[in-house]
């Protein structure tokens, strides 16, 4: 038996064909390695935490005297444990909506609830993974991951052992003492994921986390993310402009359109799990991809015409 792919992702990169059997083995391995969440998180195996309610939310910015609408009256209900992708062209407001859920941006209209509590500020219940360069460069990889647990009041020893566990989960135990600058982009993103998860968030917010990675690393990271998510069962809200990525990862795709940023479609993805890269060539995958493409193209054209009409 090969060792679990998770622990040696570099070798996994070379093995481009990975059988389903192996994915299963690594998943089983993970169950055994998975840290027990502390009492405070009150997480149940069914994943009852992580209910996101976006009620008629608008976000407007003042830009040189003008008000620009980034998100226009978004209305979404995300069930606990769901993997949801926000898909749309750049500048359509998908990151703004994510930032509103994170608490970085305050909506100008509507209400945002996570597990029934209104979002007023960023908090450790909503873990955030950024596109790139978000690790603290002056902290070692282990100290980066231990930061959240330390901030939540855990003792140093406890936080360090949590960090070790989560670094093991993303296959970076060997790099615990390295500084982020010495790691590759893919490794840095894995540290970012471990850091966000170490707080046992009920919601994982991901803002194009694999956007800056090369194609090969990206597909690997997608599979790893699904493995980890299947064990944690937390809600994931994932922003991307990559249709393949959205269809491959999610239970549900929310397509957004620009000017003003609205959610124009809510597509459920019923592809079986666990998902592996073979899926990308299957007809049912293609069908979903086409559906998304058509919707986005139609919307883009409409937006184009609208802009031309306004200009003329």
């Amino acid at each position: 038996m090969r060792p679990a792919t998770k622990s040696t992702p570099e070798s996994a990169l070379q093995e481009q064909t990975r059988s389903q059997e192996n994915t299963m083995t690594s998943a089983i391995d993970m169950i055994q390695r998975l840290p027990q969440p502390p009492e405070r998180s009150a997480k149940t195996p069914g994943g009852e935490r992580g209910h996101i309610e976006i009620r008629d939310v608008s976000v407007e910015f003042e830009r040189s005297g003008d008000w620009a609408t980034a998100v226009h009256r978004a209305q979404v209900d995300i069930r606990p444990g769901e993997f949801v992708c926000l898909l749309g062209p750049s500048g359509c407001g998908k990151s703004t909506l994510l930032n509103a859920v994170a608490g970085f941006v305050t909506p100008t209209r509507g209400e945002l609830l996570v597990d029934g509590a209104p979002v007023t500020a960023p908090g450790p219940d909503r873990g955030m993974v950024f596109q790139q360069h978000s690790l603290f460069p002056w902290k070692t990889v282990r100290d980066n991951v231990a930061f959240g647990p330390l901030m939540s009041g855990l003792g140093r020893n406890e936080a360090m052992s949590l960090a070790r566990t989560f670094l093991g989960l993303v296959g970076l135990s060997a790099h615990a003492n390295a500084f982020p600058a010495t790691l590759s982009g893919g490794m840095q993103q894995r540290v970012g994921i471990a850091r966000a998860l170490a707080n046992y968030p009920s919601v994982l917010l991901m803002d194009e986390p694999f956007g800056a990675l090369d194609a090969q690393t990206r597909t690997m990271m997608q599979e790893s993310l699904l493995d980890i998510w299947s064990e944690f069962g937390n809600t994931v809200l994932f922003v991307t402009h990559d249709i393949d990525e959205a269809v491959f990862l999610s239970d549900r795709i929310l397509i957004m359109s620009a000017s003003p940023g609205r959610i124009i479609a809510d597509i459920s993805v019923d592809l079986p799990r666990p998902r592996i890269q073979d899926l990308l060539t299957r007809p049912e995958f293609m069908a979903l991809k086409r559906e998304c493409l058509d919707l986005i193209r139609r919307e883009t054209l409409r937006a184009f015409e609208q802009q031309n009409g306004q200009a003329g």
Partner: peptide, 29 residues
């Protein structure tokens, strides 16, 4: 100080004092 690092620290539960000590100061060093 990079904004993204302050945001990251906030979403990990850091207080203003912790952000000063763990993000702003080392970044300015």
């Amino acid at each position: 100080t990079p904004k993204v690092l302050v945001r990251a620290a906030r979403s990990l539960g850091a207080s203003n004092a912790a952000i000063l000590r763990h993000v702003v100061l080392p970044g300015a060093l």
